[in-house]
Nucleic acid binder design. Structure first.
Length: 618
DNA sequence: GGTGTGATCATGCCTGCATT
DNA sequence: AATGCAGGCATGATCACACC
């Protein structure tokens, strides 16, 4: 009340004037009521409290209103101002400035001028501007400078937008373009610094883009909001989905902590299930508990309590640091809360990694020896541009593969890279010839020594035979990987593919595969004219190695599918429309048993009961 | 996240011009 | 000549941004 009373004569702002008038009327009404006086006669109605007079109306009205009011006070103020002159020059506010600068306001009581537009539309950061607080710097120069200032221009833009709503729409369109640019940068993983040049490019293409927000910080803000919006959409879809499956892909990082990418599969009313990235979680430890905690955090972040809400039906765990034991342990742990959980072999892009990791141990040290030798051979060329050039001329295939691999030191299993072994076999003679040449150069002692060691490896009968045999094994695993990468692969089919692979591997243990056969046919006393060493000494040893590799590989593949989930997963073959019988009669009874089995498995699941009830009621 | 740098703005002083 | 005013210029404060 005090403030308003104080401001009663202090402002010519239209908003203030209207409010002051209302206050005056209310005060009168209050006084009347206090004095217990009768209501005023209907000719002078007491206005009601502040109606919906919008700011917009006041703004549009304020110019004429202010000017009118000023006209009445102009003379008196002028007289008062002139009386105070004397001695050092005193600058005074000149009322004609109000006509010259429409945004200018002046309060004779406070003897301050300010900018009406800036006061209404300023941003937090510039609240200290003299033309917002109130200035006593009565110089036309000062006002002109303010009119040209960026702050004023920005506020003016906002003011005009408010006055003309149709411009807001245009601004929205322009901002949408800016959002597109920010989204593009984020989704392509491009630096935020590209924001401005990209926006400028669009401008050159005659697209209207706003001039503001073109710095990195604002781009980051836009990306942040885009991300938030997309996540909220996803969360909403997840909440609506009656069932969820989770895929966890662990990753070992030697520099930072281990982490796991959590993906979630959900169903909507139409179309197939969707798979989306949920979040990346740091692993406190690569243990069952570490993974469960990561799962808690991933779902906790979107307000889903997976243990209580009981909507999770499937789990796939993959990754370099995930052992068979860990995978099984995790399944056991989660099944304590969600007994219907299916643990399925999720898409396995690189089965050779897991197989090689699992089978390589002390008994099969030959694998690691081979790996080390291969890495040394590739490194020998990879990190010497000169040697690489020489290799390019003679052994183009191997050179290409080496380049493709990038940093050899970062490749987990060179053996697993099918094309590397293939390339080595293809360019075998050229590589051996080149190494021989390098080893014979006395001026490059270091390189010569390495080349000699590598020659020793390449001209070893057992090494070469092992490479041929591994090519057979890797080929089987590569076919499996290819099958896993198929777009519409059913779980039941994945199981079949694993079975097939196990079968093929067992055949390799008994009879030589395609590659080994080729080796045996080619090798007669020497190999393409290269005399191999340690001939036949290791034939028995090789056979034992071959057997072991096959056995272990079979075992690892067999463990891929969780035994508890197997029966349900096999029953899910019923969903493969291609396997349905043509005959209508037979179709009726087709897979009745399997459907019943799947139903019984999920029967205990609360959300299934709800889903079925909802279906019935509709 | 701290720091240096340039841009912007408010302010005061000075000067030149117009008016009294 | 005195006075008033606009505009130029210098200066310090503050802010945004780039860089480390």
């Amino acid at each position: 009340e005090g403030e308003v009373a104080h401001g009663q004569t202090a402002s010519y702002c239209a908003n203030c004037l209207v409010l002051q008038e209302k206050v005056r009327q209310l005060q009168e009404e209050l006084d009347r009521l206090k004095a217990n006086l009768p209501a005023p006669d209907p000719q002078t109605p007491v206005p009601t409290v502040m109606d919906d007079t919008s700011e917009q109306e006041m703004d549009s009205a304020d110019e004429s209103l202010t000017n009118e009011l000023l006209a009445s006070t102009d003379e008196t103020l002028k007289a008062a101002g002139a009386g105070g002159a004397g001695g050092r020059r005193i600058r005074r506010f000149k009322h004609e400035w109000l006509k010259k600068f429409w945004f200018l306001r002046y309060s004779p009581t406070l003897n301050e001028m300010w900018c009406h537009v800036c006061r209404q539309y300023t941003v937090q950061s510039s609240r200290t501007s003299a033309f917002i607080l109130g200035s006593k710097q009565f110089k036309i120069h000062t006002i002109k400078l303010h009119a040209q200032s960026n702050l004023h221009k920005k506020c003016l833009q906002l003011y005009k937008l408010r006055m003309h709503p149709e411009k807001t729409e245009e601004m929205c369109r322009n901002m949408t373009l800016l959002f597109h640019v920010a989204y593009h940068l984020a989704s392509e993983g491009r630096p935020l610094a590209d924001f401005r040049p990209l926006a400028e490019l669009l401008k050159k293409c005659d697209l209207k883009i706003v001039d503001q927000y073109l710095n990195e910080g604002d781009c980051q803000t836009l990306v942040h909001h885009i991300g938030r919006s997309l996540r909220e959409d996803l969360f909403e879809r997840l909440r609506l989905s009656p069932f969820l499956s989770v895929i966890m892909d662990g990753r070992t990082d030697e520099l930072l902590a281990d982490n796991v990418a959590v993906y979630v599969q959900y169903v909507t009313g139409e179309g197939p299930a969707h798979t989306e990235f949920l979040s990346l979680q740091e692993l406190s430890s690569v243990t069952v508990d570490g993974y469960v905690q990561a799962l808690d955090r991933a779902f906790g972040g979107i307000g889903i309590k997976w243990k209580e809400e009981k909507v999770m039906v499937g789990l796939g765990v993959n990754g370099a640091n995930v052992t068979t034991g860990l995978r099984a342990g995790l399944a056991v742990k989660i099944r304590k809360t969600l007994p219907w959980l299916l643990c399925v072999p999720c898409v396995l892009h690189r089965p050779h990694l897991e197989v090689l990791d699992a089978i390589s141990n002390k008994e099969l040290s030959c694998l690691e020896d081979l790996e080390n030798n291969l890495k040394q051979l590739l490194s020998f060329y990879r990190y010497s541009p000169k040697l690489m050039c020489e290799l390019r001329v003679t052994a183009a295939t191997l050179c290409e593969e080496t380049e493709f691999l990038g940093d050899i030191r970062a490749v987990r299993w060179v053996i697993g890279e099918q094309n590397v072994l293939n390339a080595l076999i293809k360019d075998y003679l050229e590589v051996v010839a080149h190494l021989k040449e390098v080893s014979g150069q006395p001026q490059k002692a270091e390189a010569a020594a390495v080349a000699l060691a590598l020659l020793h490896f390449l001209m070893d009968y057992q090494s070469v035979k092992l490479i041929y045999f591994l090519l057979d094994v890797i080929a089987v695993l590569a076919r499996l990987a290819f099958a896993f990468q198929g777009e519409a692969l059913l779980v039941a089919h994945a199981d079949d593919k694993v079975e097939e692979a196990i079968e093929e591997i067992s055949r390799l243990a008994e009879a030589p595969g395609e590659y080994l056969q080729e080796f045996e046919e080619t090798f007669q006393e020497n190999f393409h004219g290269v005399p191999l060493k340690n001939l036949r000494v290791a034939e028995a040893k090789f056979n034992s190695i071959r057997e072991k590799i096959c056995q272990r590989t079979q075992l690892i593949l067999a463990q891929r599918l969780d035994s508890n989930s197997r029966s349900v997963i096999r029953a899910s073959q019923v969903f493969d429309v291609a396997s349905w019988p043509q005959n209508e009669e037979r179709l009726r009874s087709h897979c009745e048993e399997e459907i019943l089995h799947i139903y019984k498995h999920f029967e205990i699941m609360p959300s299934l009961a709800i889903e079925l009830r909802d279906r019935k009621s509709t």
